[in-house]
């Protein structure tokens, strides 16, 4: 058995193609990011080495602070919305008693399939303060709750996080659903005999059995949140002002709008480190041991 699992030749064949491809296409440019973060560079000319100056400037930059805060809000929002709701919906769609569960299974995933441009345009229309659906609904209900959803420096980021969470809920939903379905039935049989309610059975069996899935979902939600970009790019342009900047948007803005590639790369490096630390911490926190049925 030991020899079977430590077959060096097999490991090399399995692992090397991926590692080579990944190192050349992803890791090598990543190293460039780190190197360039120590330069004052416009992306075209030679650039000059300036040590940690870019990083020192980052910590004095108001936009950087906003970006960090927004990344954390985004990550937290995605985690709660996608994993929480994804779990509930997956339980429902996996339950044989739920009528139309095949319909739900397809429909809950559909927003993922659409182009992000379409989805952002839709929500832009919904949240528009002048013509938007949401304010109209409040109006009809006679509530004095008209809001400047996307033009308010404190609210915009939550709206953007919601749009992202809503569209990509399907990924988490599909993963959790697949996880639930691969749990062997004899566990539920046992719970049955003990007289546990379905809810209790889920809490006691399904969720613990899904720890591998959840670990992955958590990484996906948190790194996805810290990395958020497209919604800002299409819906607010980082605005109003700089209030919905994230690190990725800041990197984009510094590199391409402001022509400060080196400074942008410092923000990008910070982001990659932040995500890496988050991933390692999640891996440590969520149960590590192999599940044996």
């Amino acid at each position: 058995m030991e020899r079977f699992f430590s077959n060096k030749k097999a490991i090399a064949i399995f692992v090397l193609p991926t590692l080579i491809l990944f190192t050349i296409i992803v890791f090598y440019p990543l190293i460039q990011i780190f190197i360039k973060s120590f330069y004052s560079w416009n992306g075209l000319s030679k650039g000059t080495f300036i040590g940690f100056k870019n990083y020192l400037r980052l910590f004095e930059d108001t936009t950087f602070k906003i970006s960090i805060k927004n990344g954390l809000i985004f990550a937290l929002f995605l985690t709660i919305y996608q994993i929480g709701l994804g779990t509930v919906l997956a339980f429902a769609a996996s339950n044989v008693k739920t009528k139309g569960r095949n319909f739900f299974r397809i429909v809950y995933f559909l927003p993922v399939v659409l182009s992000v441009t379409v989805v952002c345009q839709l929500w832009l229309s919904v949240f528009n303060s002048e013509y938007g659906l949401l304010n109209k609904i409040f109006q009809i209900m006679g509530m004095d709750f008209m809001q400047d959803w996307l033009s308010d420096r404190n609210k915009a980021i939550y709206v953007l996080a919601f749009v992202n969470a809503w569209q990509y809920l399907g990924y988490q939903f599909a993963l959790i659903l697949a996880g639930i379905k691969s749990i062997p039935n004899h566990y539920y049989e046992a719970a049955q005999i003990d007289g546990a309610s379905p809810l209790k059975a889920h809490l006691k069996i399904t969720i613990p059995m899904l720890s591998e899935t959840y670990r992955f979902c958590l990484v996906l939600a948190i790194t996805g949140g810290l990395n958020a970009f497209t919604q800002m790019f299409i819906m607010t342009g980082g605005g109003p002002g700089t209030s919905s900047y994230t690190l990725t948007y800041m990197m984009y803005s510094s590199s391409f709008r402001a022509g400060e590639y080196g400074y942008g790369m410092a923000a990008a490096s910070f982001l990659v480190l932040e995500c890496l630390i988050a991933t390692i911490v999640i891996n440590r926190l969520v149960a590590r041991e192999r599940i044996v049925y």
């Binding site: 030991e2 699992f5 430590s6 077959n7 060096k8 097999a10 490991i11 399995f14 692992v15 991926t18 590692l19 990944f22 992803v26 890791f27 090598y28 440019p29 990543l30 460039q32 990011i33 992306g43 990484v219 996906l220 790194t223 810290l226 990395n227 970009f229 690190l247 990725t248 990197m251 984009y252 590199s255 391409f256 590639y261 942008g264 790369m265 990008a268 982001l271 990659v272 995500c275 890496l276 991933t279 390692i280 891996n283």
Partner: peptide, 27 residues
């Protein structure tokens, strides 16, 4: 399988998930 560095390389490759694409476009 069992080999030295299996966890390291797993996390190494997972970096691909959180690199902002815009940052590496030029390289």
């Amino acid at each position: 399988m069992r080999w030295k560095g299996q966890n390291f390389f797993r996390i190494f490759v997972s970096i691909g998930m959180f690199i902002p694409v815009q940052a590496i476009l030029i390289p």
